[in-house]
Amino acid sequence: MKTLRTGLVAATASLAVLLAGCGGGGSAADRKTEDGLKVVTVAYTPIYSVGAIKLGMDQGFFEKQGLRVELKQVANPPSGIAAVAGDQVDFNYAPSIPFVNAIANGVKLEIVGAADGYDEGTKAAVAKDPSLALQHDDSGVVAAPGSDIHRAADLQGKTVSVPARGAQLEVTIAAAVAADGGDPSKIHWITLDFPSAVSSLKSGRVDAAGLVVPFISQAEKGGGKLVLSPGLQFFDDGAVGLWITSAALTQKDPKVVTAFQTAIQQSNEYAEAHITDAQKAAATVLKTDLATVEAGSKPAFPATVDPADVQSVIERMKQLGYLKKDVDAASLVYGN
């Protein structure tokens, strides 16, 4: 996809200005504090799962590995991918679908650890009781007030907004429509950011919107109706969001990458056992009230990434026509 590669180049150029002087660029081994810790920069999008890494920082897991983490917020996953690919940050949060898209377009990246996902048994529990979906899935499709959309197949022929074409929400929604007997190729996709999508639902500009929390509840307050939780239908139990780095850094500073990988695993294990503390940490990083964070889906933090989790995403993307080449997930997990 030429547009994706061009977009990554443009985003990298913008981020070079945004992150200049903030610790990005150069080798982590060359950036040391007075007490000898190596400074690593980590990009994240404003999502609740950032609580785990913040909690790990507070618990000292990174310092024990000789690292000091500097968190840098970026607008969206493609911006973060551009930042790590352009050597503006050392590590980045990326949902698995944008990560796979980037790999397929020649961006040299590797998976260092899990960022978020679903606990073992989540899909089975939701299958028995669909009302539990929003407790675990932070994404959803909300139909416009008074819409005749009641299930995934009803989206065929409708105008549906997503924040980016070919990315996480479009792919997962398309998969749900196909599984329900509909034809996702007949959906009229429109790109809107989440606030614009909520207002467009109210005005009738779109028939349905792919959203995440807290925008789902905002749309429901405006009369919209949640009809689908596509993430749970698409992904297996296990890792969904990933911590990634550039292949260049794994070659140049493997000790730094290994140290980060170890600290992330420890952070996730601790966060999984202290969910309330992870939510508090997320509220601190995102500068939002704790009640808003707690009202969202319950976070889950897998300790490690099973390549099978990512390979299942790759195969489903190929089946849906979003991926045209073979990608071997096992070769993309650092240290695997």
Score class of each variant (00 low, 15 high):
Ala291Tyr: 00
Leu211Trp: 00
Leu169Cys: 08
Gly224Leu: 11
Leu155Phe: 07
Ala271Leu: 09
Gln218Thr: 14
Ala114Phe: 07
Asp116Asn: 14
Ala248Ile: 07
Val112Tyr: 00
Ser27His: 01
Asp253Glu: 12
Asp207Arg: 06
Gln156Gly: 11
Phe61Asp: 07
Ala273Phe: 01
Lys158Gly: 11
Pro184Ser: 08
Gly140Arg: 07
Asn336Gln: 13
Leu4Tyr: 03
Leu201Ser: 07
Leu332Val: 12
Gln156Cys: 09
Arg316Pro: 04
Ala114Cys: 11
Pro46Met: 12
Tyr322Asn: 07
Gln88Cys: 15
Ala283Arg: 04
Pro230Val: 11
Asn336Glu: 11
Lys64Glu: 14
Thr292Gly: 05
Pro130Trp: 05
Leu8Trp: 02
Thr45Pro: 04
Trp243Met: 13
Ser161Lys: 00
Gln168Ile: 14
Phe62Lys: 07
Gly80Thr: 07
Lys325Thr: 15
Thr292Asp: 07
Val256His: 00
Asp183Arg: 04
Leu67Pro: 04
Lys287Trp: 04
Leu109Asp: 00
Thr258Gly: 09
Gln319Glu: 13
Arg31Tyr: 04
Ser217Trp: 03
Ala125Gly: 08
Phe62Ile: 13
Val206Phe: 04
Thr304Met: 10
Ala16Gly: 15
Thr245Trp: 01
Asp180Gln: 06
Gly60Pro: 05
Gly166Thr: 10
Lys252Arg: 15
Ala308Ile: 14
Leu109Ser: 05
His150Ile: 15
Asp154Phe: 08
Val160His: 01
Lys2Ile: 15
Val17Tyr: 00
Ala124Asn: 02
Leu242Ile: 13
Met317Leu: 12
Arg31Asp: 12
Val40Cys: 09
Gly26His: 03
Ser297Ala: 15
Ser229Cys: 11
Leu226Arg: 08
Ser331Tyr: 01
Thr262His: 10
Ser217Val: 11
Gly113Asp: 10
Thr172Pro: 05
Pro302Tyr: 03
His188Lys: 15
Val333Pro: 04
